[in-house]
Simulated assay, not measured.
Amino acid sequence: MNSNSGQGVSPKELSKRLNEVKISSERSNKGIKPKRKPLLPAPDLPPQLNPAKAHLYNIRRPRKAHYGFAVTSDVMVDHALRWHQGRFTREDFDRADLSDVEVICVGAAEEHLELNPEDPRLEFPLVQTPDGLRPCIAIYDSHLGSGWTLDAEKERKQIEFIRSELRLPETQEPMWYFSNCR
């Protein structure tokens, strides 16, 4: 299978991607504890980061992590421009103060990415990725285990909705990322 054909990913390509995640995870965790295995980014929350299980690993307060899609600023800007069509242009964003652009982009995401606006669940933190800090559309965070209440079907719908609204590739899966702050 060829990754360009839209039919999936070849075993060689998948192996390469998994190796890149492993390497980037090692890089993003450098200097934390040299003997500790890299924790994030990862598809599953490592038990050391789950507050309910952290005591088993002699960790008093685990680092905060978010589960969702780490995206580029361009993805956020493109999404905002689609929703504010006619009100802003990319040139407006290029000239604007960065904090104003962030407010507009996060506002568009808050308004249009929630499946149930009456019960908001999404967060929009900056997370640490192997490429540096990135905006994240987060469904869960590791410190609010009680908030992990989506059943499998609702979670799948939320993930698919975010993926389609942000025009992310179907192969991009949400992962756990360290929060920029504790």
Results as ranks from 00 to 15, higher is better:
Gly107His: 00
Pro117Trp: 04
Ala96Asp: 12
His112Ser: 10
Arg134Asp: 08
Gly107Trp: 00
Gln128Asp: 12
Asp94Tyr: 12
Leu115Ala: 03
Gln128Ile: 15
Val101Asp: 01
Arg134His: 10
Arg121Asp: 00
Leu126Tyr: 08
Asp100His: 08
Val106Tyr: 04
Thr129Ser: 09
Arg121Cys: 02
Glu110Pro: 07
Ser99Ala: 13
Glu111Tyr: 03
Pro120Trp: 02
Arg95Asp: 11
Pro135Arg: 02
Pro130Cys: 05
His112Lys: 11
Asp97Pro: 05
Glu111Leu: 07
Pro135Cys: 06
Arg121Asn: 11
Asn116Trp: 02
Val101Tyr: 01
Glu102Leu: 01
Glu114Phe: 07
Arg95Gly: 03
Ala96Ile: 13
Leu133Tyr: 05
Asp119Val: 14
Ala109Val: 09
Phe93Ala: 12
Val101Trp: 03
Ala108Thr: 10
Val101Arg: 02
Arg121Gly: 07
Gln128Pro: 04
Asp131Lys: 09
Pro135Gln: 10
Arg95Ala: 15
Asp131Gly: 14
Ala108Lys: 06
Pro130Gly: 13
Leu98Gln: 15
Phe124Lys: 03
Gly107Phe: 00
Leu133Arg: 11
Phe93Cys: 12
Pro117Tyr: 00
Glu111Met: 08
Ala108Val: 04
Pro135Trp: 05
Leu98Asp: 15
Val106Leu: 03
Pro125Arg: 09
Leu133Gln: 12
Glu111Gln: 10
Val103Asp: 14
Leu98Cys: 15
Arg95Met: 07
